[in-house]
Design a protein around this nucleic acid. Structure first.
Lengths: 370, 370
DNA sequence: TTGAAAGCGTTACCAC
DNA sequence: GTGGTAACGCTTTCAA
């Protein structure tokens, strides 16, 4: 960061400059500024005056090295632009700054290499915790990689927190803050089924993504409960984006599949699906019902307003930070199996995108009138 | 960060541990790891082996203090959740990580106190720059506060970068990365006027926000160019949110104001406006045209797809980081007036939300058929 | 209540 | 090419 001070260079003002100018010791300046030690009013006044005059701020690196410093947490996110987890980041940041902590962010772009590099980078910073946001692609290597991360951070006196994905298997020193993903999907699917729908197009997300898997499981469970046969042919996997929603519906329509409702993996996917339906001359919800997941602001802004599953993203962020703070207050790591697992609730938000089954599958030929 | 190592505590492994175990000097380990110095293959091999065995990572604070370390930039944003500037943040972060730099984020929530606190905090971190995102509320105090920030950062060897707001007045050591806000508004308004609209409801944003001011100026200029009288009564100020768009249109309709188009300050405001129109039984664009500003993904996802002004947000973020990097490569601050000012272009994206004037103002009574 | 001085873990200079 | 070692700027014992 700061190059070695060149002879001529002014040199950032240091605690020594302040001490000298105030005619006190370096230790006294430190004590006044950190406020963790009794000092005379006289001394405080002298020091603060000089601090203001010189516009002095302590060097965070030096103070961290010496054992003081601002606790910092790192948030690792796939795409800072993705609506849902942005809210988690906000929750983390707000809770952090409430405590005077700092938040570092990094984006991984779903690349394990970058994830690893960032993790190392953050570990170097001596962060109190690394908070990983969002569902994970659960390949074979995933569990091992995460376990290694967790242990490595733990050994460095830091901690791994997983937000929005299931806990790791086995005895791994990591904390998980998750939401009832499957339960939300179950409730959402139930809502659709109880409206009378039987043929529903399911767009759970990418097949290897933990969130998609949970949402699909929840949906299947609802079908079982309702005694409705689940047609795997009506499931289409894909990324959580608008294009996937649009494309999947378009293709289904083209293949003359019959369905009266779309169970989308996220609100954004639902938005894409709804638009594809409209482009085909179908109305939502008169001809086809559409539901989403996440309850991001977009859900309330679409026409018709989207019925969806509310996920307490911001609260999850706050909970994650709280977990970290509690943990380090509790005297750092505990011995042995040092895992914690939190699950927050989800619930269906009923808006306007679900109606009774409309065209009943005839919609492939022509929009029906309700 | 790290408490003083307690006697019993294992103590994070340090460079000395590595050196001892590899049977080499501390200096050699440093050289191998930083890679900024020639070392024998033999030495490198020995060191790297031990590093892997011990899962050692350097302490970033120590290395910063000693003159090495990862450059870090701070991004300060009002609301991490707001779509547009989230893209700037992404641009900054991606450009930063491309160079191996770190990105710190803080959210100010439009609170000057918090902004100040964060600035100090970031300055302590020895960041290469503090990048302030988004339009500013240009009160009397604003210019002075910013000038002070700029000088304070400059004195600390850091630098202030303003993104998405006009440059500061006078000789202030700050860099500005702005976009042609007024020009975009001018083009957008021109587009609407040339479609034949004469009575247009203008929702530029909060009256004191620099972006809103620019957008309003651009619109007025277009009216002048087209020789169309500008009715200040059709201007409604408010925050850049969905509710404002909805509320403003609703109120205008209630007051029986006549207009055939809505010039919204942002895409989100436009979304709210469109919904209010639809709620009143008016169609977009057949009865009333609606345009936005920003060109966030939402714009393409609304029905009808929104005609809007494209702002190269992500590119602005990258440009901001580039400016910082160039600057420090160029040997740090230059003497004297050390300001730079960049303006990126904007352009209208024509989609589907503008048509010829429809109801011609009659829409207050009943939706007309086109 | 205050001051002096010993670290904290790296880097970079200066010898060899 | 490699090894000592003096900074870097701060916090915190330990003494006074």
């Amino acid at each position: 960061m700061s190059r070695r001070k060149a002879p001529g260079e002014p040199g950032r003002t240091t605690i020594r400059d302040v001490a000298r100018r105030a005619g006190v010791s370096v230790a006294s300046v430190s004590r006044v500024l950190s406020g963790t030690y009794p000092v005379s009013d006289e001394l405080r006044r002298k020091v603060l005056t000089v601090v203001r005059e010189l516009d002095y701020v302590t060097n965070a690196h030096a103070s961290s090295l010496a054992g003081g410093g601002t606790p910092t947490v790192a948030v690792l996110i796939n795409d800072i632009t993705g609506a849902a987890f942005t809210h988690v980041a906000k929750g983390v940041e707000s809770a952090a700054s409430l405590r005077g902590w700092l938040t570092l962010v990094g984006t991984t772009g779903d690349d394990p290499e970058r994830e690893l590099a960032l993790l190392r980078l953050m570990r170097r910073q001596g962060v109190a915790a690394v908070i990983l946001l969002g569902g994970a692609y659960d390949h074979d290597a995933y569990q091992l990689r995460m376990a290694r991360f967790a242990r490595s951070l733990d050994a460095a006196g830091s901690h791994l927190v997983l937000v929005g994905r299931p806990p790791l298997e086995g005895e791994v020193p990591a904390t998980t803050v998750d939401y009832d993903n499957e339960g939300g999907a179950y409730a959402m699917a139930s809502h659709v089924l109880s409206a009378g729908h039987r043929r529903v197009l399911v767009l759970p997300g990418h097949a290897e993504l933990t969130t998609a898997q949970g949402r699909l499981r929840g949906a299947r469970r609802a079908f079982e409960t309702y005694g409705v046969p689940f047609d795997p042919g009506l499931v289409r996997h894909g990324y959580y984006d608008y294009e996937h929603g649009y494309g999947a519906v378009e293709e289904s329509l083209r293949q003359r599949e019959t369905f009266t409702a779309v169970l989308a993996g996220t609100d954004v996917v639902a938005a894409g699906a709804a638009r594809a339906l409209r482009a085909a001359g179908l109305r939502v919800p008169e001809d086809v019902s559409v539901v989403g997941y996440d309850d991001i602001p977009l859900a309330g802004q679409l026409t018709p307003q989207l019925t969806t599953v509310h996920v307490p993203y911001e609260e999850m962020g706050r909970a994650a930070l709280r977990a970290v703070a509690d943990r380090r207050q509790g005297g750092g790591r505990r011995r042995g199996g040092d895992a914690a697992h939190l699950v927050l609730g989800t619930h269906v938000v009923v808006r306007q995108s679900v109606g009774p089954p409309g065209a009943g599958g005839d919609h492939v030929r022509a929009p029906s009138v309700t």
